[in-house]
Design a protein around this nucleic acid. Structure first.
Length: 254
DNA sequence: GTTGAGCGTT
């Protein structure tokens, strides 16, 4: 996916990965290639996509053959406006070049064979570090996706995520926020007490005039080609099947 | 037709 015609990492021998952030969701690898190829030899471009929706996550990985060219790409393309949005180019943490990167900064990368390391300006990186620390709040949100995926609700993940972000004090005012981290407590809340959900989903009045099965069917298909994909990617699994054989399973067995 | 902090595929 998002490669130049090959599946998986083509040849990662001495490539240097760059992380391109803040790109649009419609930006493809083909759009980034002509831009990044100007700075040097681009080996591969990979854009992670969401497993559920299939769209890009808004960032890409550009692999360069040489480190100095990658460094130049960071200096030149960082902050460049691509498709109406300012992208952010920085060295990736994971990858074959992770060993040579120390805390997001290059330790020793300037092969003498190339001798083109004159474009390096450390003053620029200070701004990036400050900018990076400023926006650094949460680290991972895919975990929430995984947990919600097992619940069979893929539309509530965004709403709950926003509600948590919008009201962080609610977690603290509750005395113990650990209860919300516990899947058992959350399941119990959904079964017995969930006033917010009831107000937001007045299915009662709607079921009188419309059958619940009709809610499952959308009046207008958004993407016909995605319908079978979503059906096969995230089918409705039974709790016994989705549960893994772990000692915590005793809660499910009740 | 949608959102916007972050770190990756067979």
């Amino acid at each position: 996916m998002s490669h130049f015609g090959r599946s998986g990492p083509p040849d990662i021998r001495d490539t240097f990965s760059l992380l391109v952030l803040n790109i649009t969701f419609r930006t493809a690898a083909d759009d980034l290639f002509p831009l990044f190829d100007r700075c040097g030899k681009v080996v591969d471009i990979f854009i992670p996509r969401d497993k559920r929706t299939g769209e890009s996550r808004g960032f890409a990985f550009v692999r360069y053959k040489y480190a100095d060219e990658a460094q130049m790409a960071v200096e030149r393309l960082d902050g460049r406006n691509v498709d109406g949005r300012d992208i952010m180019v920085q060295f990736a943490k994971y990858g074959p070049n992770a060993e040579r990167i120390h805390k997001g900064r290059i330790v020793e990368v300037f092969p003498k064979s190339r001798g083109r390391s004159r474009s390096y300006s450390p003053r620029r990186r200070y701004r990036d570090d400050y900018d990076r620390d400023y926006r650094r709040r949460s680290r991972s949100r895919e975990r929430y996706y995984d947990r919600d995926r097992y619940r069979g609700k893929e539309r509530d993940y965004r709403y709950r995520s926003r509600s948590r972000s919008l009201s962080p004090d609610y977690n603290h005012g509750r005395g113990r926020g650990r209860e919300y981290d516990n899947p058992r407590s959350r399941s119990r809340s959904y079964d017995s007490a969930s006033p917010a959900r009831r107000s937001l989903s007045p299915r009662k009045s709607r079921s009188l005039s419309r059958s619940p099965s009709d809610r499952n069917e959308s009046p207008r298909k958004r993407s016909p080609e995605w319908s079978p994909s979503l059906a096969s990617l995230s089918p409705r699994r039974r709790p016994a099947d989705s549960r893994s054989p772990s000692p915590n399973d005793s809660t499910d067995g009740y």
